[in-house]
Design a binder for these strands. Structure first.
Lengths: 119, 119
DNA sequence: CTGAATCCAATAGGATACTG
DNA sequence: CAGTATCCTATTGGATTCAG
């Protein structure tokens, strides 16, 4: 068979039909810049300009778009602070933090992978 | 765990600049149908027609395209068996299996998430 | 500073038909 | 069975400009 493990996933784990929300999550996460944005948030970015500074190459338009998508998905919370000028903060929600943790094995996988391919 | 920790990820974990291959992997995985294909493979699909049968709604064109992409990424191995007619098998590679395992926490996350939202 | 609006180019996806 | 070819539409992404 494959390797050491039979590698049985429950049918509900990945397949579209059983779990459309998983596909939705994958598609959001897979969208360009989303990983960078979550990572930036984990590193302490909070304001629009901070994200923009940390994420090299992203345009205002796409940053705004992704932040909106992430907010819609409940992964980031947008807070307006009434000062002059108005400050707006984007914080990881509890769900967003959980997502980030769930993403770690994947990050680990890709690091090992590139190490293998790098040589 | 979540709210109590500062949630520090190493800078190399997700960010584009540090790990472009992670972004590439995310974008492939996030692409439509890819999750379903990996899942089908984990469930035992091997031949083109088997994937097509298990994955509801996918077109030949996209199935062929995704299988090629996954093969290019080294996640699936294509084997031609010289019989009449020729048989072609698509098996998860060791890397593909590792990826699938790395994806499990994400699947778990999405299940809990939809359970929370479902009610 | 924090975006929204617009325009344009490139890419992804769906349907259908056809081939060795 | 295992795809390819073609056509067409929808979605993405980039650049630039404008506004509260």
């Amino acid at each position: 068979m494959i390797g050491t493990q039979p590698l049985r996933l429950e049918r509900s784990s990945i397949h579209d039909d059983s779990c459309p929300s998983f596909q939705a999550a994958l598609e959001l996460i897979g969208r360009r810049w989303t990983g960078s944005i979550l990572s930036a948030a984990a590193q302490g970015a909070r304001r629009f300009g901070e994200y923009r500074a940390v994420i090299d190459g992203i345009s205002d338009r796409l940053l705004a778009q992704r932040l909106r998508e992430l907010e819609t998905e409940g992964l980031i919370e947008r807070t307006v602070i009434p000062s002059t000028p108005v400050q707006i903060r984007y914080d990881l929600s509890t769900e967003g933090q959980a997502l980030l943790r769930a993403l770690q094995p994947l990050a680990h996988w890709s690091i090992q992978r590139s190490a293998r391919q790098g040589r």
